[in-house]
């Protein structure tokens, strides 16, 4: 599948962007939404569509590190930018602190809002490593969850913050080995 609207290729524009660290490009109609580009052209289906009107946040991705709702951005608007989606959170099989937090604190039920929530949480901790509950609630207030009632999502983000803080404090594994861990 090369494009959302193959029959309108005459109008197509070339979009080239970095997605989860990899260069991706395609020719798409100017009207193609970023979320459709991600889901249909790139087949990265972890980014969801919940409302089409930027009200629910299920489509949230990070654009150069900032959470944005990809249902109200055009793909052509982000050409040349760097996008992170849920598929880019884990490093191989190892879950990121945010994913671990959501698992440990039961921060998800149906899982539909989860990618957006985790990306917002990840961006929050980048600039505020130790947010208060109020700051977390404000940060995720553009994302709707119908299942959890948010309490466990707040805990999940706090959990991720704690893992990250611990990682900063703890010596690196190599350092342990070099320090006579054997």
């Amino acid at each position: 599948m090369n494009s959302v609207s193959p029959n309108l290729d005459a109008l197509a524009r070339h979009v080239s962007l970095k997605v989860n660290g990899a260069e991706r490009s395609a020719d798409v109609e100017p009207r193609v939404l970023l979320v459709d580009f991600i889901r249909t052209n790139l087949r990265l289906t972890g980014t969801h569509i919940g409302c089409d009107t930027s009200s629910c946040g299920a489509c949230t991705v990070l654009v150069d590190g900032t959470p944005m709702k990809s249902c109200t951005l055009l793909a052509v608007q982000v050409s040349g930018r760097s996008i992170s989606t849920v598929e880019g959170l884990a490093a191989g099989a190892a879950m990121s602190p945010m994913q671990t937090g959501f698992h440990e604190e039961h921060g998800l039920q149906c899982g539909f809002c989860t990618p957006g929530m985790m990306l917002v949480g990840t961006a929050l901790l980048e600039h505020n490593p130790n947010p208060t509950e109020e700051q977390i609630r404000w940060a995720i207030s553009g994302n709707i969850c119908r299942c959890t009632g948010y309490m466990n999502i707040v805990k999940a983000i706090q959990h991720a913050a704690a893992i990250k803080a611990e990682a900063v404090k703890a010596p690196k594994p190599e350092a342990v080995a070099a320090g006579g861990g054997q």
Binding site: M1, L44, H48, T85, V86, L89, Q99, H106, L108
Partner: peptide, 21 residues
């Protein structure tokens, strides 16, 4: 116990209807 179904959702690998092609 922690949920067995979490993993695929946490990795964006859930299989919702609109993901099907």
């Amino acid at each position: 116990i922690k949920r067995k179904e979490d993993s695929r959702f946490l990795h964006g690998k859930g299989n919702y209807i609109d993901d099907l092609a």
